[in-house]
């Protein structure tokens, strides 16, 4: 496998123990290049630990991993990787522009390219007008924007964003989603750590769900959600008639709404036709009603 063709991230049974505490039990996953990958899990699931291991900030207790085709912790590879930590904090006594200059220097970007590169990332995160102010005077949201700007320096091939919208208002969140779309268009792989499921649903191509340090589900959003269920509001049928469509899937009936789980999308029209044939009046059909949140909670409860 050549480095260029290798996935953005690949790890096998990556684990981390802090004394007796198991932060990550054995993470196995592959993140393709150029995709937006959502890494989901409840608090304490090991998401941030996983990011730190992949960046080489922590040494794994066991397992192996490769980032952009190189073993994790490889120093030169970090030139091609960006990172915004979950608990972002930058030198309060520097100005925003000085923080970015420091990171340009540490990232070994050619000095002549710094001003242009710094202007570019400042514009992307909307901090252009405050770049000369000390970080100490920034609001939390502005510091988060600065953190995202730092991660964008040098146009890395892979960017880790650990809860990148935790301090942002709705406008800021929208901006970050647009930014992630922009990165995807440029072919940048984005590893998005988040517990904001609706947000992940909006931007990610593929997700992995983790719980207690293990991946409990992984795949594209369609694979995880599509056809999983359909909600239909139907009247004019008696209980026996309503129950007769059980063959289509596991069913919940509240007398008005029918929730059918495990239904392939192609079979939704068949189910509706069947209900109409029985004499039912169909008022609403909501295929793929299940959200990432439903699926997530379902997976969590079944795994515990």
């Amino acid at each position: 496998m050549t480095a260029a063709a290798s996935p953005a991230i690949h790890c096998v049974e990556l684990s981390k123990h802090f004394g007796r505490t198991v932060a990550l039990a054995g993470l196995t996953m592959t993140v393709p290049r150029g995709e937006v990958f959502g890494f989901l899990g409840p608090n304490g699931a090991g998401k941030t630990t996983a990011v730190k291991l992949l960046l080489g900030l922590l040494a794994p207790t066991g397992g192996e991993g490769w980032v952009l085709g190189q073993p994790i912790g490889d120093i030169p590879t970090r030139r091609r990787v960006g990172y915004q930590p979950e608990l972002f904090r930058y030198q309060p006594w520097l100005t925003g522009r000085e923080v970015l200059r420091l990171h340009c220097e540490l990232a070994r970007l050619p000095r002549s390219a710094w001003p242009e590169e710094i202007d570019r990332v400042l514009t992307l995160v909307g901090l252009r007008d405050r770049d000369g102010d000390r970080v100490r005077t920034y609001s939390k949201g502005m510091q988060q924007r600065l953190g995202i700007a730092v991660s964008l320096l040098g146009s890395p091939e892979l960017i880790f964003l650990d809860e990148p919208t935790s301090a942002l208002d709705p406008v800021g969140r929208y901006d970050v989603r647009q930014l992630i779309h922009h990165l995807r268009q440029r072919g940048t792989a984005v590893f998005l750590n988040s517990h904001l499921l609706t947000e992940v649903e909006m931007v990610c191509d593929r997700v992995a769900m983790v719980d207690r340090g293990r991946v409990i589900a992984t795949g594209t959003l369609d694979e995880l959600l599509a056809g999983q269920s359909c909600r239909i509001r139907v009247t004019g049928l008696d209980a026996r008639q309503r129950q007769s469509v059980r063959a289509y899937g596991e069913m919940d009936d509240d007398g008005e709404w029918l929730l059918v789980r495990g239904l392939e999308p192609e079979r939704v029209p068949d189910l509706v036709a069947e209900l109409v044939r029985l004499g039912g009046r169909v008022h609403a059909v909501e295929p793929r009603h299940q959200t990432l949140e439903d699926r997530f909670l379902q997976l969590l409860s079944s795994g515990r």
Binding site: L57, P76, R79, P85
Partner: peptide, 14 residues
């Protein structure tokens, strides 16, 4: 403690 170190050490530095 302030996590400033995380962003620094994620750069190509030891």
């Amino acid at each position: 403690e302030s996590n400033i170190v995380l962003a620094l050490l994620a750069r190509p530095v030891r």
